[in-house]
Design a protein around this nucleic acid. Structure first.
Ligand SMILES: [Zn+2]
Ligand SMILES: [Zn+2]
Ligand SMILES: [Zn+2]
Ligand SMILES: [Zn+2]
Lengths: 140, 140
DNA sequence: GTAATCCCTATAGCGGCTAGAGGTTCAAGA
DNA sequence: TCTTGAACCTCTAGCCGCTATAGGGATTAC
């Protein structure tokens, strides 16, 4: 019927201290308590936490998740905010990929420039790490 | 001849508080001071900070940079550590790219699933954010 | 001499948790 | 019914790599 925090944790994959942290941050509602002050959750808390977890797994920042939760609590409002949040997140992810690809190129070059078998004084890797002029791109 | 911390900052693109933070962390050496207790840097500090900055721009964690600095201070040691650090970082970057690409796919799908022009109750984006079963991959 | 601009230390905060200390409650087995 | 031991509670501090104050002192250009 109702879950302890540990059961909720197992059901969602969210760690117990993290669940308490989300409660403190107002991202999930404070559940009812037993006489001994332990939390007891209902089905809807499970739904909410799964939603939250999935959003986190998609890389959304807490602030965006907060807005999405607000929106789902007001189902008659237009969904334009959800649309914007998804688009923003997609753009942010693409920007990060682009950046990391630049790093990948440079690091592949640097890593291949030495086999790791001579004194540090002559090491091309150390030289490459120290001198951005040897790089092919700006990588930020 | 010697630089103030602000001049060092301008020359390297590292912000003034960040330079002080690096000093506190032992990543750069504490420079000499004026009679009025202000830091004055030399050419070699500039080199060191540039090295550090470039490593950070390549995404290396501080711990790895610490090892690289140690290594460059012992130029007769073998460079195998530098080699390992570069390879590890390359691998880490590739893993992050792979992960982000999964997110990109899911978010592109989610973002395209709604134009943002109806009530939240019917919004496919909100549904997709709430239900991982609709996803195409595991994205962790 | 004075004003503008730098510089100093120290502390707290960011995001998003995670770990620990020190104590209480619950549930299953004897 | 009692006992154990796992799970729970609150509170605080720590993680990374900075960044942003606050409240002062030093330097420099005019
Ligand atoms: Zn080498
Ligand atoms: Zn570079
Ligand atoms: Zn919609
Ligand atoms: Zn998913």
């Amino acid at each position: 019927m109702d879950f302890s925090i540990g059961e909720l944790s197992k059901a969602t994959g969210v760690k117990v201290p993290t669940i308490r942290y989300y409660e403190k941050e107002g991202l999930i509602e404070a559940p009812i308590r037993t006489e001994g002050n332990q939390r007891r959750y209902q089905e809807r808390d499970l739904d909410r936490l799964r939603f939250l977890k999935h959003c986190r797994d998609l890389g959304l920042p807490m602030e965006a998740i907060r807005e999405l939760i607000d929106l789902s609590l007001h189902p008659d409002q237009p969904c334009s905010n959800a649309n914007r949040i998804a688009a923003d997140q997609l753009q942010a992810i693409r920007a990060r990929i682009a950046h990391l690809k630049k790093l990948e190129k440079e690091l592949a070059r640097i890593s291949a420039s030495c086999t790791g078998e001579h004194p540090a004084a002559d090491c091309n890797i150390l030289k490459a790490f120290g001198d951005h002029d040897l790089c092919l791109s700006d990588h930020k």
